[in-house]
């Protein structure tokens, strides 16, 4: 019961108070480059939720049932990245076979995800914070949703921004970072709501 409650708390904390993008700065590269369009942001965001939840769970199993018994914790970086890359490849092949519409919507984003640092980051945080199995899964799921939320909000804002007059030097990455900073400030309003 206790761990179940903790898992729920972790889930909400990962979305709001400890948002992986806005407080841990992870996944910035794809966030900055993809958030130009709402449609592509939606596709990438959905793919991130799915991959993050699955790989955090898979990496938990690999770490606790393979690496620790063998005493190979130091190799976790290599193993985690291989698990993520293999999983993404597998999902890509399955989606291609099963549904063409889904492949058209998500397929192009999957290769991008392997190099999204947020995915590896979630697995590394899970090890450092010593989460249990359910907690790891909920943390991955929550972080994915938090990332989705942030990129969708940003895509919406950038859509409006196209008509705005931005100082020349700030165009592109600069103004996006300023807005991200404001979003991070806004999300700080949630802090204190849940503490993990």
């Amino acid at each position: 019961m206790d761990t179940g409650f903790a898992a729920v708390a972790i889930f909400f904390a990962a979305i709001f108070t400890n948002n992986i993008l806005l407080t841990n700065y992870l996944g910035m590269c794809s966030f900055l480059s993809v958030s130009r369009e709402i449609k592509t942001s939606l596709g990438l965001g959905a793919a991130v939720i799915f991959v993050m939840a699955s790989t955090s769970f898979l990496n938990y199993i690999v770490y606790h049932f393979v690496l620790i018994p063998l005493g190979l914790e130091a190799l976790r970086f290599i193993v985690f990245i291989i698990v993520i890359a293999a999983f993404v490849q597998l999902v890509e092949m399955v989606i291609e076979r099963v549904s063409e519409t889904l492949y058209a919507a998500l397929g192009i984003f999957l290769p991008l995800i392997t190099v999204n640092c947020a995915i590896l980051g979630v697995s590394l945080f899970m090890v450092i914070r010593e989460y249990g199995m359910l907690q790891s899964f909920m943390y991955g799921l929550g972080s994915g949703i938090g990332w989705f939320l942030a990129i969708m909000a940003m895509a919406g804002i950038r859509q409006r921004l196209k008509k705005a007059q931005v100082p020349k030097g700030l165009e592109g990455a600069g103004i996006t970072l300023v807005i991200t900073g404001m979003m991070a400030l806004a999300f700080m309003g949630f802090s204190g709501m849940i503490s993990v």
Binding site: T23, G174, V178
Partner: peptide, 18 residues
């Protein structure tokens, strides 16, 4: 904290690009 990092980098990029 996090927002400061975003603002600081934005200002840095602004100055250099300018």
């Amino acid at each position: 904290m996090a927002p400061g990092a975003f603002f600081m980098l934005a200002v840095f990029i602004w100055i250099v690009k300018g």
